[in-house]
Simulated scan of single mutants.
Amino acid sequence: MAEQKKSKGLHIGLWVAQVLLAAAFGFAGFMKIATPIDQLAEGGMSFVNSFEAGMVRFIGISEVLGALGLILPAALRIKPVLTPIAAVGVAIIMVLATTYHVMHSETFLPNIILFALAVFVAWGRFKKAPIQAK
Rank of each mutant, 00 (worst) to 15 (best):
V95T: 08
A34Y: 04
I12M: 09
E52M: 14
L14Q: 07
V64G: 06
G13T: 01
P73R: 00
H101F: 11
P84V: 06
T107P: 12
Q39L: 15
L70W: 10
L109M: 14
M94N: 04
K128N: 11
V90D: 03
E42R: 13
K8C: 05
E3T: 12
V90I: 15
P80T: 00
T107M: 15
A2I: 09
N49H: 11
K8N: 14
W123I: 15
K5C: 02
R57E: 09
P110E: 02
A122N: 08
A87E: 10
G13N: 07
T99M: 14
M1G: 14
K32D: 00
L117W: 10
E52R: 12
A67E: 10
P73M: 00
G89I: 03
E106K: 11
T99W: 13
M55F: 13
G26T: 07
V16F: 06
V88K: 03
A41L: 12
A87I: 04
A74V: 06
L117G: 02
P110Q: 04
H101C: 07
A118C: 10
A118Q: 06
F126W: 11
G89F: 06
I33F: 03
I92M: 09
Q132T: 11
V95Q: 08
F115H: 03
T99G: 15
K79H: 11
L20V: 15
G124Y: 05
T83M: 03
F47E: 09
S50Y: 15
V81P: 00
V119Y: 09
T83I: 01
G29L: 02
S62I: 01
I71D: 01
T35H: 06
A67D: 10
L65M: 15
A133G: 10
A75C: 03
I12G: 05
V81W: 14
L72S: 05
S50Q: 09
I93K: 03
F126M: 12
F47S: 03
L72H: 03
L96K: 05
S105W: 07
K79M: 05
L114N: 09
A22V: 11
K134M: 11
E63Y: 06
Y100I: 05
P130N: 03
A24D: 09
A86N: 06
K32R: 03
A118V: 08
L117F: 13
V64T: 09
I33G: 00
H11P: 01
P36F: 06
M1D: 06
L10R: 12
M31K: 10
A86W: 07
N111D: 11
T99V: 15
A129S: 15
W15L: 13
A74W: 02
K6T: 14
R77E: 01
V95Y: 02
F47Y: 15
A118D: 07
V119C: 07
H11M: 13
K79Q: 08
F47L: 01
F126A: 05
A75G: 09
G43E: 07
F47R: 01
Q18V: 00
T35F: 00
F47T: 00
A41H: 10
K79G: 02
G9E: 11
K8A: 15
S46A: 13
S105D: 14
A86P: 09
V90W: 04
G43N: 12
S7E: 14
I61T: 09
L65C: 14
I131F: 01
L72G: 06
A28L: 01
M55H: 07
I92G: 01
